[in-house]
Amino acid sequence: MRALILILPLFVAVVLLALATGRALDRRSARSARWQVVHYGRDGFTVVAVGLLPRRGGAPLDEHVVDRIPAGDPEWTTRFLHAREVAEERAFHLNSGGTALPG
Rank of each mutant, 00 (worst) to 15 (best):
L6F: 05
E85N: 14
A18S: 11
L52M: 08
A18T: 07
D67M: 02
R31W: 03
A87K: 14
D43C: 02
G51I: 04
T21Y: 12
R2W: 04
M1Q: 04
Y40D: 06
L6N: 05
R28I: 07
V48F: 08
E63I: 10
V38I: 13
L52G: 04
R31P: 04
A91T: 11
D62E: 12
P60K: 03
E75H: 10
S32V: 10
I69C: 00
G98M: 03
I5V: 11
L10V: 09
V48W: 10
D73Q: 06
P9H: 00
E88D: 14
G103I: 12
A13L: 14
L19G: 02
G97S: 15
T78H: 07
A13G: 04
W35F: 08
R90I: 01
D73N: 15
L10T: 06
A91R: 14
R55M: 00
S96K: 13
E85F: 10
T78E: 14
T77K: 13
D67T: 01
R2N: 08
A18V: 05
G41V: 04
A3T: 06
I69H: 00
D67K: 04
F80C: 10
V37W: 01
A33C: 09
P74A: 13
G98L: 03
H39I: 02
R55A: 11
E85V: 08
H39C: 04
R28D: 08
R56G: 13
I7P: 03
H93L: 15
V14L: 15
V48T: 00
F92M: 14
V12G: 09
E85G: 14
E75R: 13
P70A: 12
H93I: 10
V48G: 03
G51P: 07
G44V: 04
V47W: 02
R27N: 01
A20Q: 12
L61E: 01
L61M: 06
G72P: 09
G51T: 09
V12R: 11
W35N: 07
D26E: 11
E63N: 13
L4Q: 00
P9W: 03
F45R: 06
G41I: 02
A33F: 05
A59R: 14
F11Y: 08
R68T: 06
R23C: 05
Y40P: 04
L52T: 06
N95S: 09
L17A: 14
R27Y: 06
S96I: 12
D62F: 05
R90G: 07
G57Y: 03
W35A: 05
S32D: 13
L16K: 09
R56E: 15
L6W: 03
V47E: 07
R28S: 06
R2G: 09
A24C: 07
H64P: 04
S32L: 15
A83Y: 05
R55V: 02
H93M: 13
D67Y: 02
V12H: 08
A59S: 15
V38Q: 14
A83S: 15
V14S: 13
